[in-house]
Amino acid sequence: MYRIFLAHVLLGATCALSLVAGRPAVAQDKPYFVTYTHDLEEPGNLEIETKTSLGRPQGGNHFGALSTEFEYGARAWWTTEFYLDGQTTANESTIPTGFRFENRFRPLMKEHAINPVLYIEFENINGADKTILEVVGHDGQADLAEHNGDAREDHEHEGEFKLILSSNVHDWNISENFIAEKNFAHEPWEFGYAVAVSRPLKTSLSLRECTFCLEKVTAGAEAYGGLGDTWDLSLHDTSHYIAPVMGWYLPARMRVTFSPGFGLTGSSLDRVYRVGWAYEMPQIGSLFRSHKKEVVR
């Protein structure tokens, strides 16, 4: 399990070397691990984010799963994202589990009472994936207890669709996600949900730049789970979680997030712990354009 922590630390250290001092953190993204909001990446910006999940299924070994995300603001209304996933399980092995390609589209650019976003994702993963980026259908801890040697042989090509509804009410963010996922190998449609709420601990900004101040911390909670599938559209044998969340916005466009999750049904993990880290690189596209002009000269 220590290998995934080492990979997490090395990635954070490598990116930290490229920080540009003095750039303030952008406290736009909410500290959710499963739920999406209507916030998209700023056009031209690239955000690198890691999400680590730690848990132990009943009858299985402790595991740590790492998802590394590269999120780019293609347009003001379009954000595209690429994920690389992997996991390590105690007494078993450390393996990559696949990749995901995601796109989010915001049809209404002005702020409304409810802001919809359309989400489309293609997943090429195997059965050993334990990132728990969503819970759909009858997903449960039994799936996470399967031995890596067997689970990695199960290759899954899936399409995932989400309707994201998000609102900013005064200082609060309230978001709801409705999920539909389809395995292309003649499997039924699976459904799930995620809902979340959060707000900064302090809304008035300090007159000076600070790191250890309440306006840099956002707290809230999210809940998520499965809603069955087209063969059994019910809550029978489904997993559900409730999880407090906290985000700390650091200088130089960095963000650290943490969430302890608690299972609510017998199919759920008893606990799942999540840690996240993110760094935003502003206007990465303009850097390549500037380099191209210099080469032409």
Rank of each mutant, 00 (worst) to 15 (best):
residue 231 W to I: 06
residue 255 R to I: 09
residue 184 F to C: 07
residue 81 E to I: 09
residue 272 V to D: 07
residue 29 D to A: 09
residue 79 T to D: 04
residue 157 H to M: 15
residue 295 V to A: 12
residue 208 R to P: 01
residue 165 L to S: 05
residue 139 D to F: 09
residue 5 F to R: 01
residue 80 T to K: 02
residue 87 Q to N: 14
residue 253 R to N: 08
residue 186 H to E: 13
residue 52 T to M: 09
residue 208 R to Q: 12
residue 241 Y to Q: 02
residue 64 G to Q: 02
residue 226 G to I: 00
residue 219 A to K: 03
residue 111 E to C: 08
residue 285 G to R: 01
residue 234 S to M: 06
residue 204 S to K: 11
residue 288 F to V: 03
residue 128 A to G: 10
residue 253 R to K: 14
residue 245 V to M: 02
residue 10 L to P: 00
residue 87 Q to H: 14
residue 157 H to S: 10
residue 52 T to A: 11
residue 57 P to A: 03
residue 213 C to Y: 14
residue 139 D to E: 12
residue 32 Y to T: 05
residue 147 H to E: 14
residue 281 M to F: 15
residue 285 G to L: 04
residue 164 I to P: 00
residue 237 D to S: 14
residue 268 S to N: 08
residue 2 Y to R: 09
residue 53 S to N: 07
residue 33 F to E: 03
residue 125 I to H: 07
residue 50 T to K: 00
residue 206 S to Y: 10
residue 85 D to H: 10
residue 276 G to H: 02
residue 27 A to P: 01
residue 255 R to E: 11
residue 258 F to C: 08
residue 14 T to E: 07
residue 220 G to P: 04
residue 69 E to V: 09
residue 146 E to D: 11
residue 155 H to R: 15
residue 91 N to Y: 14
residue 113 A to Q: 13
residue 263 G to C: 08
residue 62 H to S: 12
residue 73 G to S: 03
residue 42 E to C: 05
residue 35 T to S: 10
residue 282 P to D: 04
residue 95 I to R: 04
residue 266 G to R: 12
residue 236 H to R: 15
residue 203 T to N: 12
residue 131 T to H: 03
residue 237 D to C: 07
residue 196 A to F: 01
residue 275 V to A: 12
residue 242 I to E: 00
residue 101 F to E: 13
residue 210 C to Q: 15
residue 60 G to H: 03
residue 249 Y to N: 07
residue 240 H to L: 02
residue 236 H to E: 10
residue 95 I to Q: 03
residue 98 G to L: 02
residue 118 L to D: 04
residue 286 S to C: 06
residue 87 Q to V: 15
residue 112 H to W: 10
residue 41 E to T: 10
residue 34 V to F: 04
residue 144 L to I: 01
residue 216 K to D: 00
residue 1 M to R: 08
residue 245 V to D: 04
residue 265 T to Q: 09
residue 214 L to W: 14
residue 243 A to K: 00
residue 237 D to Y: 02
residue 252 A to T: 10
residue 67 S to A: 15
residue 208 R to V: 14
residue 157 H to D: 13
residue 29 D to Y: 02
residue 250 L to M: 12
residue 224 Y to R: 00
